[in-house]
């Protein structure tokens, strides 16, 4: 089955098919059976440690307001669907907002607390428990209206070559997706698994961490999180992954 899927994917992803929808395949299908089983095991999947911890963080009062996430929002299950729509345009701030940005805003404006740092355990716990509520739902970001300019910037960032290796995202993840690179199969760059547990990291990471990792891999200056360019790229990647089911916490190599 996996072999057939891969074959189908390779056929559809042949050069000339620029339409991203054709080459879409979740990184889950590039895992071996053992790692697929690990992701599917809701007990042993190490990402579930962050779901647990996120549930506790959700319930904990924070900051001068003395309120928890639960006090305003109810249970984390009320966040179902949210992660599939992010990043999205925030018309008050006139910029894109991803899940981390939403949490940081809520923390500082409403709870009057120090917002959790990017990639901190607290941040990953909260983003993971929220994203986990949307597991099985298709990614569906809005890229029209006020988000259109940012989307265009993201598409441009994806196609622009960078770094000492002079590679764009598209060079690997569009044009060579499915090809072998040492023991690895180059992924289609789908971001439906995040936040995810990556064995290389031996821990959880966000979409933005993966973008920075990829930047470093091509010897480029890593895009800093919470910048317009990084958020625009995240929006474009989420759109490229549209329709794929959110898997957080996914397992990847």
């Amino acid at each position: 089955m996996r072999r057939a899927l891969l074959l189908l994917w390779l056929l559809l992803a042949l050069p000339g098919h620029a339409e991203p929808r054709a080459g879409q395949i979740s990184g889950y299908h590039l895992l071996g059976e053992e790692l697929q089983a690990l992701q599917d095991d809701d007990f042993a999947n190490p990402g579930m440690l962050w779901v647990d911890r996120g549930q506790r963080a959700w319930d904990a009062a924070a900051g001068a307001s003395g309120t928890s996430c639960r006090d305003c929002h109810g249970g984390p299950e009320r966040m179902q669907g949210l992660a599939t729509q992010l990043p999205r345009w925030n018309s008050d701030q006139e910029r894109l907002e991803n899940l981390e940005g939403l949490i940081r805003n809520c923390r500082s404006a409403r709870q009057q607390a120090e917002p959790p740092a990017y990639e901190s355990d607290e941040m990953l716990a909260l983003t993971t428990v929220i994203a986990h509520q949307s597991r099985g739902l298709p990614l569906a970001v809005a890229v029209d209206g006020p988000a259109a300019d940012a989307f265009a910037a993201g598409r441009d960032a994806f196609a622009r070559r960078r770094g000492q290796l002079d590679l764009s995202c598209a060079d690997c993840h569009d044009r060579h997706a499915g090809a072998r690179l040492r023991g690895e199969t180059i992924s289609a760059g789908m971001i439906n698994g995040f936040p995810l547990y990556r064995l290389t990291w031996e821990g959880m990471g966000s979409r933005q961490r993966m973008i920075r990792w990829c930047n470093e891999a091509v010897r480029a200056e890593p895009l800093q999180p919470d910048t317009a360019k990084a958020l625009a790229l995240e929006l474009f990647l989420a759109w490229r992954s549209r329709g794929l089911e959110l898997e957080s916490p996914a397992i990847r190599r």
Binding site: F43, A44, P46, M48, L49, R53, E202, G203
Partner: peptide
């Protein structure tokens, strides 16, 4: 018994 514990090792 199955166990999973958070630790960087």
């Amino acid at each position: 018994i199955r166990t999973l514990v958070s630790h960087p090792m």
